[in-house]
Design a protein around this nucleic acid. Sequence first.
DNA 1: GTTAGCACTCAGGGCGAGTGAGTGCTAACT
DNA 2: AGTTAGCACTCACTCGCCCTGAGTGCTAAC
Lengths: 343, 343
Amino acid sequence: MDDRKQRVLQAVVQDYIESAEPVGSRTIARRHDLGVSPATIRNEMADLEMLGYLEHIHTSSGRIPSSKGYRFYVDGLMQPTSLTDEEKAQIDRWYLARVRRIEEVFQETARLISRVTKNVALVLAPQMTKSAFRCLQFLPLDDRRSVAVLMTDAGFIENRIVAMPSGATFEDFQRMARVVNDCLAGCTLDAIPKAAYRKIRSEISDENLYEAAIDVISCALDDTEGRERLYLGGTREMLSQPEFRDVERVKEILMMLEEEQLLKEILHAHLGEGLRVTIGRENDYKGIQDCSIVTATYHLDGELLGTIAVLGPTRMEYGKAMSLLGYMNEHLSDVVRKLGWQG
Amino acid sequence: MDDRKQRVLQAVVQDYIESAEPVGSRTIARRHDLGVSPATIRNEMADLEMLGYLEHIHTSSGRIPSSKGYRFYVDGLMQPTSLTDEEKAQIDRWYLARVRRIEEVFQETARLISRVTKNVALVLAPQMTKSAFRCLQFLPLDDRRSVAVLMTDAGFIENRIVAMPSGATFEDFQRMARVVNDCLAGCTLDAIPKAAYRKIRSEISDENLYEAAIDVISCALDDTEGRERLYLGGTREMLSQPEFRDVERVKEILMMLEEEQLLKEILHAHLGEGLRVTIGRENDYKGIQDCSIVTATYHLDGELLGTIAVLGPTRMEYGKAMSLLGYMNEHLSDVVRKLGWQG
DNA sequence: GTTAGCACTCAGGGCGAGTGAGTGCTAACT
DNA sequence: AGTTAGCACTCACTCGCCCTGAGTGCTAAC
């Protein structure tokens, strides 16, 4: 693949991404200064098609890039666009203006990404079970029940109403909380050692209370186990893409977007260190083989926290999506910190 | 308007709701046993059009109901369908199977309603400020900050990270919580009397701590003020309605559905005791003058809690929507109670 | 008052011609 | 040998046309 072929491929991909129409040799000759005539470009395009980088709907229509073509473009031809300082500042401002509660960070991230990229954004929030126990407290509710509040190192707070075993007083519960706090300090929630349970049992020394304590802990775990939350944004933006002019296609994709479990699987399958792009046919799931996904993992103090992703037609502005996710990837934890989420 | 006219109007509305096609005189004569010929029905339809109950796209197409026609149908002609015991049981089962956290009740309600009615469902969750203060507690986070947990009578729990003023210890905070709990017992959050503030001030007697306390309270209020949460369900279901065969229309309505503030306003405008139906032109907001809204308010222990609504094309199955919302209206609080939300 | 009959209307589908963007091939040019 | 101009060909798309069928409105007869 010589230099000129690459330039032609680049021109085709760029034009197609911009116009969403199959691009012909004349258009390229006019809009890109390749210094050759349309006829020559036609020959190059025929070669590129033979090599599998371009495709043809029918003999007399322009070319569109194949998955392989996009792949080559993303890996080598695309010029990386990086966000301007102004854009970065805007993102920070957006967060400060809109996010008032910890839980909103993820939703707003999804919304922000979808606005900028005009595609669907997916944000997979951290699994609570992966984070370390910080403290458990009880608040009195009435004489039979109280509210258990569980906090983890990552700053997550779960609350849940629990019944107090008959005979137990609120003071018993307070004592239980102290014991549990002592024994579980620093444990990650998905791997509480047997020894910790034994210690709790011996320290509480009341069988009824012990049962209740175990109940609270396992209940908090059950609830979040395998249930990282998924935030979605931009189904509306998506509709402005010409790929979704057809209602049937929209219905299909909306259907898929409501299958939370499926989306999580897809995200997990595509998960890897840093930025990752999966293009069209490279997707295992049939329903989105005309779509691409850009994913990035984000971290907090070196700890893997979750995934952010852009899902859109293969004709996606990869550069923009990648630079945005890259920025998020690096700075989401800063933003979160600024909002006072973590110490 | 004589009896036969009413029967004809009823037939037209029913057929149109079912088929989404303008209905003609022959169709009615065939499908409804009115005992008269199409020609007679034609005459009646012409009268109904004159009276404003029916409309005409062009001379040679069938009739469709006008807003006024739907209104007459809903108010008088429609036979109320009530849910079967099986359906009711199914709803209860759905809740028990899907709802594991208090916050999910609303989301699942929206999802359920949209599934049953094949339209968009809106659930306006209670305003925190309308409920009574129950208690405030602090959990230690680190040496400079702690987590404030605010609970109200309706069972809502808000948590928020607050900085401790320099010099204050966690014990100071605990004391502050006790004072606040004493002074605010039973107040509704949007109407805390001045006297209560004065009492807090005098009892805390430390100006710094007093500021911090006020901060926490007003912060909790700020956050939720005018910000009842809105849960949406069924944008996907909506697409199966023939009214939304056109992507532009879909885009418009999705756009509107993302304007949370606007939706809240619309819901508030339509809010009233019990079941309420607003049809087509009766809507003030132009964007949905080809849509109808059915709203119901729901209660808990006699206290107004929030609103559930169905939004769909005027050609909506009013009977179904109304009976479903009616059931929800009566039983949502039961369901919520069963899930242990409230004592 | 009801109905049959008839002329009229109009959206929607199918069909054919024309248009234009684009290709592939070949022969000439540098 | 690579590049280009020229030309025939392809094919989606649009437009106008006709036809069909569902439906109306009117009138005259029952």
